[in-house]
């Protein structure tokens, strides 16, 4: 029964994501960002002719990370605003009544929705991220050292955020869950930057802000790992000062323990979402 429900609901969720207006908005945003970045990268090459090759690479890596941040933000907004309506919206509108009166377990329905959103979020990151990397390759000739790890970490970040969005949408309204999820995502990112600045100035208590926030919501730690995978490793040795407290450059890759924690975090939050949804009166 569960084996039947999960794939059915997952396919339905992907279909929903593909047919809703959110997708069109997401596509437009992505195309705009990609077009802007293509133009920007071509300008870096044309305008900064006087830069040394190393400086040009630093600029390209920074801008690439900046654009990737834009993409991750679109992925975050997109998945959070898809995760909200898919549970809270269905409950509010009454769509959930007919579906949950079928011989299905609520946990299986929620798991199916999560799986559908994961497929959608990862698909988006893969397609948009790869396009971006190809644009950079075509305009500046730069190819990141570890694009697969970078994209995988970006996808993991989207998964973390949509799982949070799903939990929120089982307890609060669709719009509020999207806003809270994106707000927390932004707050963690800022806390991460603050923590980096603290580390750069050797202030431990400020640095701890970043560490703690990265544990509470693993999006920022995964994002920093993704940045690290996109930038040229040679930069770290030549421009190590530039990395100190830089919001769009990162000197660390996530440790296996941290990745494990991110996995546990997702499982815990998903488990909480299932419990909240199962206990809810519709």
């Amino acid at each position: 029964m569960t084996a039947r429900t999960v794939p059915t609901v997952a396919a339905l969720t992907v279909q929903e994501a593909a047919r809703r207006r959110v997708l069109r908005a997401l596509a437009v945003l992505t195309v705009v960002l990609l077009a802007l970045s293509a133009w920007g990268f071509s300008r870096i090459d044309a305008e900064f002719g006087g830069l040394t090759s190393g400086e040009a690479r630093l600029a390209a890596a920074t801008v690439l990370n900046l654009v990737m941040f834009g993409l991750s933000l679109i992925a975050a907004l997109g998945t959070a605003f898809l995760a909200g309506p898919t549970v809270a919206g269905d409950v509010e509108s009454g769509v959930a009544l007919a579906v949950l009166a079928r011989p299905v377990r609520r946990g299986a329905v929620l798991l199916g929705k999560w799986l559908g959103l994961v497929v959608f979020g990862c698909g988006f990151v893969a397609v948009a991220g790869l396009t971006q990397l190809l644009i950079v390759l075509a305009t500046t000739g730069y190819w990141p050292p570890d694009p697969l790890t970078g994209l995988a970490l970006l996808a993991a970040q989207a998964v973390v955020l949509l799982t949070l969005g799903l939990l929120l949408s089982t307890v609060i309204s669709p719009m509020a869950s999207g806003i809270v999820a994106v707000g927390l995502f932004g707050a963690t990112w800022i806390a991460g930057v603050v923590g980096e600045i603290g580390a750069a100035f050797g202030n431990e208590s400020v640095a701890r802000v970043g560490t703690v926030s990265r544990m509470l919501l693993p999006t920022d730690g995964l994002w920093r790992g993704a940045m690290n995978a996109f930038q040229d490793p040679a930069l770290l040795t030549r421009f190590s000062d530039a990395f100190r407290g830089h919001p769009f450059l990162s000197e660390v890759t996530p440790t296996p323990a941290y990745l494990g924690w991110a996995g546990v975090w997702v499982a815990l939050v998903l488990g909480l979402a299932v419990i909240a949804f199962t206990r809810r009166d519709l």
């Binding site: 339905l12 929903e16 509108s93 009454g94 769509v95 009544l97 007919a98 009166a101």
Partner: peptide
């Protein structure tokens, strides 16, 4: 089941 609040995808 036909719910009182009938809405479909």
């Amino acid at each position: 089941y036909l719910p009182e609040l009938f809405r479909y995808q």
